[in-house]
Amino acid sequence: MKELIKRLVETYGPAGSEESIREVIMEEVRPYVDELHVDALGNLIALKRGGGKKLMLASHMDEIGVMVTSIDENGFLRFYGVGGISPFSLIGNRCYFANGTVGVFGMERLDAMKDLTMNKMFIDIGVDSREAALEKVKVGDVAAIKREFCDLGKRLVSKAMDDRIACAIQIEALKQVQNPAYDIYAVFTTQEEVGLRGARVAAYGITPDIGIAVDVTRTGDTPKCATMAVCLGKGPTVKVRDSSVLCTPAVRRHMEEVAKANDIPYQLEVLEAGGTDAGAIQLTKSGIPAGVMSIPCRYIHTASEMVDYDDVLNGVRFLVKLMETEYQG
């Protein structure tokens, strides 16, 4: 599965520019599903028939990135963030565009580091004129952070673990599921990082009976960090809440029961900031019961997001069992 994770996290796909990652995922899931469909916002909807109620799964395939807003006469690119990206996390980093062009982040001279904002930074793609830059990049082009996958053994590090690790789990679960208890709409959503947009329209189109999002969550297990009772390596979480959703109590109970019945370790998660696709799914039409399984992840929205491989494997087991166990409501 590490091969799959490596392939997914290293594929380009910032919010709104998900074509490449969608192609990769499509190829991976095609043999294991009954139908594939792409909707108006680019969501990839993979249907695996098992009869009965509709279960919508959502893992978002977009990642954070930067968009070029202007190119100066010396070929430097100015940019803005796509999704919640901190200028501080960009210093010393590189990015790459859909066509493979690589750039490095630079910044203007500042009196104090705390004054750093995105519009005091630029991307240097190694050219010395606007004309030369325009041969590689246009205004409006979007770049992803460039950083390779790194296997530390027990722990995995890369950019875009948020939320490709969930895409990997969703793909793997589609491969492994034996007796789906639902018509499973496994959605690889778009534009989560800019406001849960893909999941919202996908849920409207599908109108599922239950929705489960798969995402990453923060942890409280690093030195002097915020209070949070989630640790790497203690299993996937069953979310109680974040700023986008108070998970439907019955779904949360159902998820806990499934985990307990199958001896899958899990943690309860209260995330004080941040949202997930479940927030959009739950408020669709006259309301959809919604829950979230999260993979604990350190350093979210940086180039080095870290997850625990056991959590990932347990996430796959958990998701398979959720696919195979009917929600009674």
């Binding site: 909707d39 916002l41 807003t69 803005y80 329209v201 409207y204 189109g205």
Partner: peptide
């Protein structure tokens, strides 16, 4: 091309209307 990404307009609501 508009060079800033701040602000939002009606396109945002239309974009996520119904199934997109």
């Amino acid at each position: 091309f508009k060079g800033t990404v701040t602000g939002g307009n009606d396109a945002g609501r239309i974009n996520v209307s119904r199934a997109g």
